[in-house]
């Protein structure tokens, strides 16, 4: 059995969340921004699961499943957009300096 409090878990989740947030803010490449958003989503899911585990209930895990769904849909659409950008705005620079 592990002796870890909820606070520890939540702090870990926050650290990861803010790492992702910094990524969104400092990167200019849309691909990196997308990945950073994935980190943030993952951290949020982590917090949910920790909270669910705290009470020994399944709800936290279910929330994580929903986040997973959202992330999957978001990634699908986001990547489709990136492909479209790339096709329409073919530049000499292979990576798109968007945003």
């Amino acid at each position: 059995m592990i002796a870890i409090s909820l606070n520890t878990g939540l702090i870990i989740a926050s650290i990861m969340f803010f790492t992702g947030l910094i990524g969104v803010m400092i990167r200019k490449n849309i691909m990196f921004m997308l990945i950073s958003i994935e980190i943030m989503l993952n951290a949020a899911g982590l917090a949910f699961v920790f909270a669910g585990a705290q009470h020994g209930q399944a709800d936290g895990q279910i929330m994580f499943l929903f986040i997973l769904t959202t992330a999957a849909a978001e990634v699908a659409v986001g990547l489709a957009l990136i492909i479209q950008f790339y096709q329409n705005l073919k530049r000499s620079i292979p990576m798109l300096p968007i945003i």
């Binding site: 947030l21 969104v24 803010m25 400092i26 990167r27 200019k28 921004m33 945003i99």
Partner: peptide, 11 residues
């Protein structure tokens, strides 16, 4: 028009 700036604003 820079999303990063907007994110900074939100933060």
């Amino acid at each position: 028009g820079k999303v990063r700036r907007y994110v900074v604003g939100i933060v």
